Amino acid sequence: MRKTLVVLSVVMMLVSLNFGATKITVWGMGQGKSLEQLSKLFMEEYPEYEVDFQAIPWSNAYEKILTSIAGRQVPDVAQMGTTWMAPFGSMGAFEDLAPYIESSEVVKPENFFEGAWETGIVDGKQFGIPWHVDVRAMFYRTDLLAQVGYDHAPQTWDELYDAVKKLHENGSRYGIALYQPQDNYQTFFPFVWQNGGDILDSQGNVTVDQHEFVEALEYYTRFFTEGLTPISGSGNIFQDFASGDTPIYFSGPWMINMTRDQTPQIDGKWDVALMPEKKSRTSFMGGSDLVIFRDSKNKEGAWKFIEFASRPENQLLAYQITNELPAARQAWEDPLLQADPMIATFGEQLNDAKAPVNVPEFHEIAAAIDRMVQEVIYGRKTPEQAAQDLKKEIEKILK
């Protein structure tokens, strides 16, 4: 009897010590510093879980994810680039998060920016929760614009063209930088959205031959054909901005500190503004989502981790670590983000930002759009012809 009591006491002691915490595997892309730090904080709050965090370089992340899915050796939680949601989501790799969201107080659609929330939707199912967001805004030289009669950033399409032309006539080699070495669609497509156009309509029909798209293409390529922006890039964007060769360009929030660090000679002579308006001021929305894999071995713990990462205070902490913008609206109420007017402008732009169409074939479509823009820039096709040919190519891609 005494021996039995001793055995029971040992068992109870092991249980009370929570022997063998439940493991959660988390993959963070790039250096993953913010998710790594949050993993440590998560374990402090939830000692019943042990987080095995792994940083996965972006360069080989796609292939690693494919291999893990094929071998059914997936992590519980992973950071997923927004344009990767559709390829993996459409193959059934992710857990549908709708049931978890229904019972959550933290993860609700209204708690996030609309454009960010939509990045996690594939085929009508919510597979991802916004982790951080990426959005574009206008960088401009306040001093040079003042010289051509603008005491403010160009507010509309008409003002943007007028200002760029006047800047060029005033001595700037170009008035604006629009070219990107890769993913040029990220600069072009906001103009399509601002004009009410898109790639697909709500029924999935290709709409790039419609007036809204063609007009945006005409407007965008005009800067190139009139010599107001370099066709293949003009060198170092920081040097060109500082010299006045390209006094306006569009980019993300990471450029704020980089510009301050690399071009201190123009401090106080530049600022950040919202995108120019036609029918809207819509900008490009990127970033990453957090997902749970369908073959996860610990979905309950994985969801707790996502909820933890989605808290506004933890999104704010992630921003402090990496400068990646929070996806949670409430985080933007913090003085830390409001204290810098330039960062606050990006927060305002997030209210009118959109992600590209969420289909598995998007990368092929994006490449086709880049080729189409080049054909118009170099005069090989008219905007109308290029748009019609693009429609046929996208329809072929989607078959």
Rank of each mutant, 00 (worst) to 15 (best):
I321C: 07
Y179H: 14
L41V: 09
T119Q: 13
Y219C: 07
F284I: 07
V11Y: 12
A216E: 01
T142H: 00
F188S: 03
G252W: 13
M43Q: 14
I397L: 10
P253Q: 08
P47C: 07
S104E: 07
R173I: 10
V77R: 07
I69R: 11
L5N: 04
G204H: 08
G92C: 05
Q262L: 15
D389H: 07
V11C: 13
V26C: 06
H168C: 06
I176E: 03
M80P: 02
I292G: 11
T207N: 04
D209V: 03
G81W: 14
V51S: 09
E45M: 12
T229Y: 00
V26A: 09
G81T: 09
V122I: 10
S59E: 15
L17E: 09
V51A: 09
A355P: 01
V15L: 15
T156P: 02
S288Y: 04
A273E: 01
D370T: 02
I365T: 06
W131S: 14
T67A: 15
A153P: 00
P109W: 01
K3M: 12
D162M: 03
V26I: 12
T83N: 13
F362D: 05
R2C: 09
S234P: 05
P276R: 11
T229R: 01
D389R: 13
Y179I: 10
G124L: 06
A355W: 02
P47E: 08
N205M: 08
N18Q: 15
L167P: 02
P356K: 03
T345E: 09
S251L: 12
Y174C: 05
A78E: 08
E212G: 04
A302M: 09
Q315V: 09
R371W: 10
V7Y: 11
N236V: 00
L274R: 12
N236Q: 06
T83V: 13
R329D: 07
Q315D: 04
R294T: 10
R72A: 14
L390H: 05
D271W: 03
L145Y: 00
S288Q: 12
Q180N: 14
M372E: 05
E313T: 05
Y220A: 07
A21E: 13
I56A: 12
T263L: 06
L145A: 01
V192C: 08
G244P: 02
D201H: 02
N358K: 10
T246D: 05
